[in-house]
Lab assay of single mutants.
Amino acid sequence: QTIHNGDQTYHYDNPEEAIKVAQKLAKIYNLTVTVKGNTVQVH
C-alpha cells in the first residue's frame, strides 16, 4: 500500500494501516483521501 501526500510517499505492508494514516493526515491538514487500488492519495 502506498500513500502519496503531496511530494511525500509512504509505503505500508498493511492496507488498513495505510488508510488510517492517510485519514489522520487528511484531518490534520484538512485534505481529501482518495483510494485507488493499492495507492492512497492525500491531497
Rank of each mutant, 00 (worst) to 15 (best):
H4F: 13
T34I: 09
G6R: 12
Y10M: 05
D13W: 05
G6P: 09
Y10C: 10
D13L: 08
Y29I: 04
T32V: 13
N38M: 04
Q8S: 09
T39S: 07
A22R: 00
I28K: 13
G37Y: 04
I28T: 05
T39W: 07
T9W: 14
H43R: 07
L31P: 00
D7H: 15
D7T: 15
T32W: 07
L31H: 09
A26M: 14
Y10I: 04
I19V: 08
G37N: 05
Y12I: 02
N5S: 12
T2P: 12
D13R: 13
T9Y: 15
E16W: 10
E17F: 06
V35Y: 02
Q23P: 00
E17K: 07
K20I: 07
T32F: 07
H43T: 06
T34Y: 05
A26T: 11
V21K: 05
V42R: 00
G37A: 04
N14F: 04
E17A: 08
Q23V: 08
I3A: 12
H43Y: 06
G37W: 03
I3K: 08
K24H: 14
Q8E: 08
L25D: 02
T9C: 15
I28S: 04
N14G: 04
E16D: 08
Y29C: 14
G37I: 03
V42A: 02
Q23N: 09
G37M: 02
A18W: 05
L25V: 02
V40Y: 00
I19L: 13
V21T: 05
Q1G: 12
V40Q: 00
T34F: 06
Y10A: 02
N14S: 15
G6E: 08
Y10N: 02
V21E: 12
L31K: 03
Y10R: 03
I19Y: 11
H11L: 07
Q8T: 13
H43M: 06
T9A: 05
T9P: 03
I3W: 13
P15D: 06
T32M: 08
Y29K: 10
T34H: 04
Q8D: 06
T32G: 04
I3Q: 11
K36F: 11
N30P: 03
I28Y: 15
K24A: 14
L25C: 09
N5L: 12
T2I: 11
H4I: 11
D7K: 12
K36S: 13
G37E: 05
Y10S: 01
Q23W: 07
V35W: 02
H43Q: 05
A18S: 01
N5H: 12
N14W: 04
V42S: 00
A18K: 00
N38Y: 02
N30A: 06
A26F: 06
V21I: 09
N14V: 02
Q1E: 11
E17C: 12
A26E: 15
D13K: 13
V21S: 07
E16S: 06
H43C: 10
I3H: 11
K20G: 04
K20C: 15
I19S: 07
V21M: 14
Q23I: 13
Y10L: 09
K20T: 06
V35D: 00
L25N: 01
T9V: 14
I3N: 11
K27D: 14
N38I: 03
V33Q: 00
I3E: 09
V33A: 02
N30C: 14
Y29N: 07
H43F: 08
V42T: 03
G37H: 03
T9H: 08
P15G: 04
H11D: 05
I28V: 09
K24N: 10
N30M: 06
Q8R: 15
A22F: 04
N14A: 04
L25G: 01
N38C: 14
Q41A: 06
V35P: 00
V35E: 01
V33E: 01
H4T: 09
K24V: 14
V40W: 01
Q1I: 13
T9G: 03
D13G: 08
K27W: 13
L25M: 04
N38H: 05
Q8L: 13
I28R: 08
L25W: 06
K27Y: 14
E17M: 12
Q1W: 04
H11Y: 14
G37D: 06
Q41N: 07
A18G: 01
E17L: 10
Q41D: 03
I3C: 15
G6Q: 10
G6D: 08
Q1D: 10
P15F: 08
N30V: 03
A26K: 13
E17R: 06
N5D: 09
N38Q: 04
A18H: 00
I3R: 05
N38T: 07
T9S: 06
K24G: 06
Q8P: 06
I3G: 10
